[in-house]
Design a protein around this nucleic acid. Structure first.
Length: 494
RNA sequence: CGGGGUGUGGCCCAGCCCGGUUAAGGCGCCUGCUUUGGGAGCAGGAGAUCGCAGGUUCGAAUCCUGCCACCCCGACCA
């Protein structure tokens, strides 16, 4: 039992906060709304980064880096972009500090006012398109397929660790193309990459879809997204990919010479996932005992805890463990042997459960006699997930078990999502489902922003997306009764 | 920006209404002994200008005034 961990059923958001704290993932900092990501939490993020980075490169992208500061004049060039972000921008106005008259504090030197204010990037489209203008002259310069790993700042009023912080880490891809078709294909491809990553690496099932106009990224013609379902029945947008059309090319006057000598505006995309994925990870798999990590994201995949009284016992166990560790490492499995004598075994068990280590091996004198180990899988807590496994061929067994856990987590989350997806045909059922059950609700919508907004105002539910590959089906809008050609996905969202 | 709340050892917090010895307790930390197959027990110890600045008073964590910070609920959001 997680010591002091609030149960999900009692208070979900408290449970979430406690996991973040007790699993050593992150904590609040002295700066309002900004978090400190702790080593264990950052190790998980690094695993995400490494895999995504590999996937981006495999699809032809290169990394680059653009400035954190964006001149206000750049920022204001694309009108809808400004509308979307203006209210949450941090602005740099001065470049120097000085001692106050009484020498007691440091103050802003009013003489050091910037000629032009700098915006701390909330996203980098504008600085990047100002740059691309210089990079692109001819169709031969296209496509440009660039990604950057960076921090961004959006001055949020209400923040929550990983889910919404004023500063967060992310990657943002920015691509430039000669044709509309190619740009759309790129945006779609990157959505596929995200979905693949979420499902196969994080074991988080996601819906792929297109945002409605009101939920669209500021400056995009089309926003695609992956949406995950958390254990409290709320949806979480886990990644977005945007087809930006020629909006930024026009705003920054980025044209290219075509093969036949004409001049055309460049087509653009951008796409990103952030440290918010950490929130998705936590809220998808974890339980009342603590964090649960899919093996592919676990900084430690197998932990070995020796149980002993005498130094002789420890010696024998350590000798055995040493061999096992070598075998595991050869199989590419990250393993920790915790023979710290400052902590008792029970303490360690609870600790590694809290931190979501997928497999725990405990070895005591009895095991050494029997040629066994006590093997516990984190995805099945308690006795049920515990067995005495033979020492023979253990490393291979563990490798297989890690794969099994990876798949099991995905399947469990998938069946939960299936249970929590409801088809409704009228507004009363819609409201009832929303309050009694939550989850994704598939319902007909007349396609108007007006209806969408009214439903949101009345129920707090938003249209998460219009499913890709969703089938056409005649029906009536649950709110207005007007004809509709397909169902869309509603949910309350983070 | 509106409405509500809280600031007390590293962390959680009692005390405040009704002013008065050395500011209580838990977690954590340090020392020692005993323990060790699911978050050990006992004993001892260190650690606090009670958010800041004024005021009232013989005396302020406690009462008054002002300021600051943070948290929660609403409108915006990956």
């Amino acid at each position: 039992m997680g010591k002091g961990l609030t149960k999900r059923a009692e208070n979900y958001s408290e449970w979430y906060n406690e996991i973040v704290a007790k699993a050593d993932l992150a904590e609040n900092s002295g700066v309002r709304g900004c978090m400190v990501i702790k080593p264990y939490g950052f190790a998980i993020w690094e695993k995400m980064q490494a895999e995504l980075d590999r996937m981006f490169k495999e699809t032809g992208h290169q990394n680059a880096y653009f400035p954190i500061f964006i001149p206000k004049s750049y920022f204001s060039k694309e009108a809808s972009h400004v509308d979307g972000f203006a209210k949450e921008c941090a602005v740099v106005t001065h470049y120097r500090l000085k001692n106050s008259e009484d020498g007691k504090e440091v103050i802003v030197d009013q003489d050091a006012k910037l000629e032009e204010e700098l915006i701390v990037r909330p996203t980098s489209e504008t600085i990047i398109w100002d740059t691309y203008k210089r990079w692109i002259q001819s169709y031969r310069d296209l496509p440009i397929l660039v990604n950057q790993w960076a921090n961004v700042v959006r001055w949020e009023m209400r923040t929550r660790l990983f889910l919404r912080t004023s500063e967060f880490l992310w990657q943002e891809g920015h691509t430039a193309h000669a044709t509309k078709v190619e740009a759309i294909k790129e945006a779609e491809q990157m959505l596929e990459v995200y979905a693949d990553f979420a499902e196969n690496f994080m074991s988080v099932p996601v819906l792929q879809g297109t945002k409605t106009e009101s939920e669209r990224f500021a400056g995009a013609l089309e926003t695609y997204c992956i949406e995950a379902l958390m254990q409290d029945g709320k949806a979480l947008q886990a990644g977005t990919s945007h087809f930006l059309g020629q909006n930024f090319a026009k705003a920054f006057d980025v044209k290219f010479a075509t093969k036949d000598g004409g001049q055309e505006y460049v087509w653009a995309t951008s796409w990103g996932v952030s440290t918010r994925l950490m929130g998705a990870l936590i809220m998808t798999h974890s339980d009342d005992y603590g964090l649960v990590l899919p093996p592919k994201l676990a900084p430690i995949q197998v932990v070995i805890v020796p149980i002993y009284k005498s130094p002789e016992d420890l010696n024998r166990i350590s000798n055995y463990a040493e061999g096992l560790i070598i075998e595991l490492k050869e199989l590419g499995i990250s393993v920790k042997y915790d023979d710290d004598d400052q902590r008792r075994a029970g303490w360690k068990f609870a600790e590694y459960e809290m931190k979501g280590v997928p497999i725990r091996i405990a070895i005591g004198p009895k095991d050494m006699e029997n040629g066994t180990v006590e093997l516990s899988r984190r995805d099945v807590p308690g006795k049920e997930g515990k067995e005495y496994a033979p020492q023979a061929n253990l490393a291979v067994r563990l490798q297989e078990l890690l794969e099994e856990i990876q798949v099991n987590l995905f399947q469990r989350a998938s069946s939960y999502r299936q249970e929590m997806t409801t088809i409704v045909d009228n507004y009363d059922d819609f409201k009832k489902t929303l309050t009694d059950k939550g989850g994704f609700i598939m319902a007909h919508w007349d396609g108007s922003e007006e209806t969408e907004k009214r439903i949101k105002d009345e129920t707090k539910a938003t249209i998460r997306c219009i499913l890709h590959g969703g089938k056409e089906e005649d029906g009536k809008c649950i709110y207005s009764g007007k004809p509709s050609k397909r169902r869309v996905v509603f949910a309350k969202a983070y």
